[in-house]
């Protein structure tokens, strides 16, 4: 699928997209500054299908949805972390950025490793080392929302049903 960008614990939303770039909500323009203060080389190296692998509390800080939006628009296919901060977790589901909790994969993936993820089964494969890992399953409620195409579509359907 793509190569891994590996980061540590507590990657915060100011690191993912600094506030000085929140003068637009255009995903492509946000993507130009993704991870800028944390990893100046990220934007130049990221390719469609790559993955971010990080430690605990990924996405802590601000409620800015610009953070998962910037990551998604940069070409990153999914984020694998030991744990996620709650607003980032919620925002990622709402906007359709796949995120996976899997401490074992975080321990078993190094920077640049080739990684493949099966979103149906939650199996993460490190193709460089040949090791596989099982991500924690998502609650059915969230899967339903993902299946209906994110919160925007979910609400659209609800409004239609409610005749509004």
């Amino acid at each position: 699928m793509g190569k891994a960008f590996v980061y540590g614990d507590h990657v915060d939303t100011d690191g993912i997209i600094p506030a000085r770039h929140l003068l637009t909500s255009d995903p492509d323009r946000l993507a130009e500054h993704c991870m800028e203060d944390l990893d100046a080389e990220f934007v130049g190296r990221v390719e469609a299908g790559d993955v971010i692998v990080a430690g605990r509390n990924f996405g802590c800080g601000s409620s800015r949805e610009h953070a998962p939006v910037a990551i998604k628009a940069s070409g990153i296919r999914c984020v694998i972390a030991t744990s996620f901060a709650r607003i980032f977790y919620r925002n990622s589901f709402n906007i359709g950025l796949p995120i996976l909790e899997c401490p074992e994969a975080v321990a078993g993936i190094s920077s640049g490793d080739a990684v493949h993820v099966d979103f149906q089964t939650g199996v993460i494969e490190n193709e460089t080392t040949g090791k596989t890992f099982q991500a924690r399953p998502f609650p059915p409620f969230l899967l339903q929302m993902v299946d209906s195409g994110g919160l925007t579509n979910y609400v659209k359907q609800a409004l239609e049903q409610e005749g509004k």
Partner: peptide, 14 residues
Amino acid sequence: TGVGSTDMAAGMAR
């Protein structure tokens, strides 16, 4: 509690 913009939009709508 704090949420993102899509949650805010859903809140305004419904």
